[in-house]
Design a protein around this nucleic acid. Structure first.
Length: 591
DNA sequence: GCCGTTTTCGGCCCGACTGTTTTCAGTCG
């Protein structure tokens, strides 16, 4: 870390999370372990840089941050290192930490495997399984060994992959750095990240420069570069210290828009558009668009499509080879009006209802539906009927004050293993909006899970089926069930489907979203936020929605507060409620 | 490590599921 360039919140959070993992593997106090893990999440969700909050003393006011954490943040800010982390890393081989990511392996089993078998990497563990050495360990058996092998397979497929959010963070950090470089002219993110692909291999950047060599030198010498993989006169690729591969290509200024198009991909799309351009007498390459013997100067990326006689295709739709035109009302970020599905301190969120609603307003949303967990999610302090009523009183008071955007009473109620909902019907009827989600028994047999979900979405008390498959990208496969049957049941009963915008979920999957929308099922793009920063995840939902060609009119959370409440009432067979009272915004006089 | 005190030490998220056991440990949500 360079002097005067304090580590950002993600970097600090990653250090705390790693300390937590390592303490767990060394058999430290479980509460201390959890404390480090929870403070890592807290720092990740802080609205301001932790270094700045440390400087002005506000860091210590954050719940979960004590003197110990403040001291370690200070150490990181001042020295760029954490002695505790260095000590722990010396004790535990890095491959052992990777084993924690195997489904079914926790710290106890990983420790047993590491210390008894001497296994210290996923590859070694796979070999040990194939030699039937795992099943002979105390507390292990055939079934466990089989599941570990399956988990290792999943891990191998996920290795080296990055969530879109991780890649975008790496891209942003790199761009911020390069924009300070005087040699840089234009800079852009290209490749799958620009297309908003949910899981990517790395980050591709494109630039033009006064001095390509100087820009590339600045790129490979960034303080957070861990390794330089390749370097030519016009390109370089590096691996950042968080493991993200980043490549930078520098092109000549007249080639910019052609190169932007080509580097964005997908390969099939570029090939199709290039072929269409060829048929009209143009040659399209990363060096530019050539007609006959001269380079055509392009004013914008759209010119590439004009040369091909094709309609412009937004990057999110370029996975398709054919340049099919986007619908005029393809969803854009500004279309999303409301925040549905966000947690607060009432359950496992980190901020109050008021704080979350205020942040939603700052981000440009016009209504906020609080959706904490229900009681079955006891690990998350889920709400029972009595606490629900207490929360309603708080929401009523907040709305009566008129000090923030309209706050709707919602809940994320558990869908229990038999498909029933986790709160009595008279309580469910009191919410403005009910999201129902599966959080337990995710491994039911497909037929059982299908019936469970069909029963749940058929209830007149549910409005939205939350994160329908329960998948965690790069972490866990979704539950197996008959998606078509569940979608048919949603369509039959007028129940909406969630597009959970958390970048770890992006669930329902983009492939099924189109099928849902084609059935007339409204799609709710929900951040599932647990802190202030999580509210910004809507952007990933919008990207995925665009990839599924969702139109504004197909998105439930694109409705204004009155239309949304009317939809919720109609779902229950009730007349629309009276319009939300209009108040002048704070500080504004009535006209 | 953090928190909240009955202020300096004890408690911290808990129930279900799985696979292993033969009464329960480990993992997960």
């Amino acid at each position: 870390m360079a002097a005067g360039d304090p580590p950002d919140n993600d970097t600090i959070a990653a250090a705390f999370a790693e300390v937590s993992d390592l303490l767990e593997l060394t058999g430290d106090n479980p509460h201390r372990v959890r404390s480090y893990a929870s403070v890592a999440r807290t720092i990740e969700g802080l609205p301001r840089p932790a270094s700045a909050m440390l400087a002005d003393g506000t860091l210590l006011e954050v719940k979960g941050v004590g003197e110990g954490t403040a001291a370690r943040v200070r150490e990181l800010v001042e020295t760029g290192r954490l002695a505790l982390l260095d000590e722990l890393r010396a004790k535990v081989p890095p491959g052992v930490v990777e084993l924690l990511a195997v489904q079914g392996l926790g710290p106890k089993r990983v420790r047993e495997i590491w210390q008894t078998l001497g296994v210290s990497s996923p590859a070694e563990l796979e070999y040990a399984c194939l030699e039937n050495r795992l099943r002979d360990l105390k507390g292990f058996g055939d079934k466990t060994q089989e599941n570990v092998l399956k988990g290792l397979g999943f891990l191998r497929r996920a290795r080296g992959k990055r969530l879109l959010s991780q890649a975008r963070a790496a891209a942003e950090r790199t761009l911020t750095r390069l924009q300070r470089c005087e040699a840089a002219l234009r800079l852009a993110v290209v490749g799958p990240v620009r297309r908003m692909v949910t899981v990517v291999d790395g980050v591709d950047l494109l630039a033009t420069a006064h001095d390509a060599a100087a820009l590339l030198e600045a790129f490979v010498t960034m303080p957070f570069v861990a390794q330089v993989r390749a370097r030519t006169a016009t390109s370089a690729s590096v691996v950042l210290e968080d493991g993200t591969p980043v490549s930078l290509a520098v092109v000549d200024e007249p080639a910019w828009f052609a190169a932007l198009f080509v580097a964005t991909g997908s390969e099939a799309h570029v090939a199709a558009v290039t072929a269409a351009a060829s048929a009209r007498g143009y040659r399209l390459s990363p060096d530019g668009l050539v007609e006959g013997r001269h380079l055509v100067v392009l004013e914008e990326e759209e010119d590439v499509y004009r040369a091909a006689g094709a309609p412009f295709v937004p990057p999110e739709l370029r996975d398709d080879a054919a340049p099919a035109p986007a619908p005029d009302d393809l969803l854009v970020a500004a279309d999303v009006r409301g925040v549905l599905h966000a947690h607060t301190r009432w359950s496992d969120g980190a901020y109050s209802v008021r704080e979350m609603a205020d942040r939603a307003r700052e981000l440009g949303f016009s209504w906020f539906a609080v959706c904490d967990h229900s009681a079955a999610a006891s690990y998350a302090h889920g709400l029972d009927a009595a606490r629900v009523r207490e929360q309603w009183a708080e929401v009523d008071a907040l709305n009566a004050s008129g000090e923030t955007i309209p706050v709707l009473k919602g809940i994320e109620t558990d869908i229990l293993p038999d498909g029933s909902l986790d709160l009595p019907e008279d309580v469910l009827a009191g919410f403005d909006v009910v999201v129902g989600s599966v959080h337990s028994a995710l491994r039911q047999a497909p037929a059982v899970m299908t019936e469970r979900l069909v029963r749940a979405v058929s209830s007149r008390f549910i409005h939205v089926l939350g994160h329908p498959t329960g998948r965690l990208l790069l972490g866990r496969e979704g539950s197996a069930f008959d998606v078509e049957r569940v979608l048919d049941a949603c369509a039959a009963h007028g129940t909406a489907i969630e597009l959970n915008a958390n970048p770890h979920r992006l669930d329902l999957d983009e492939r099924w979203l189109r099928a849902a929308a084609d059935r007339g099922i409204p799609i709710a793009i929900d951040p599932d936020a647990h802190d202030l920063r999580g509210l910004e995840d809507v952007v990933y939902g919008v990207g995925t929605a665009r990839r599924a060609r969702l139109r504004r009119g197909e998105v439930l959370t694109a409705l204004d507060v009155d239309a949304f409440r009317a939809w919720c009432a109609r779902r229950r067979g009730l007349p629309p409620p009276a319009p939300w009272p209009v108040r002048p915004a704070p500080g504004e006089e009535e006209a």
